[in-house]
């Protein structure tokens, strides 16, 4: 039973595609932030960073191939951090 999780082997090709996507998004974010988009610069850069991190989590860190349980844990941790930041900002936004 313990060996089941290891039967899945990710192909080298998959990793290379993911890397290309990640590099593309890196350059895209450099390009986007060099033009002045006003307040949208921050959101654009952070959005790209979030997509990149999701890719890393799913493919490089194997969340896509592992049991769902790992993905649920990881998602809840990010959600928790988001909640904590949100509540902290209830103070700073309305001070």
């Amino acid at each position: 039973m313990e060996k089941e999780q290891h039967t899945h082997i990710v192909k080298y090709k998959t990793y290379i595609f993911v890397l290309i996507a990640l590099l593309f998004m890196t350059f895209a974010s450099v390009a986007i932030t060099s033009i002045n988009l006003g307040p949208y610069t921050v959101s654009a850069a952070l959005l790209l960073a979030s997509i990149k991190s999701i890719l890393v989590l799913l493919i490089f860190m194997h969340l896509k191939f592992d049991k769902k349980f790992y993905g649920i844990m990881a998602a809840s941790v990010f959600l928790l951090l988001a909640c904590v930041i949100f509540i902290t900002f209830l103070d700073y936004l309305y001070r």
Binding site: T26, S29, V30, T33, T41, V42, A45, L46, L48, A49, K52, S53, V56, L57, F60, M61
Partner: peptide, 21 residues
């Protein structure tokens, strides 16, 4: 490997926050 990806993951956010924005 997981640990190394974590290091990468953090950098993915550090990079835009310090260098790009």
């Amino acid at each position: 490997g997981l640990y190394w990806h974590l290091v990468d993951l953090i950098w993915i956010f550090l990079f835009p926050l310090f260098y790009l924005i």
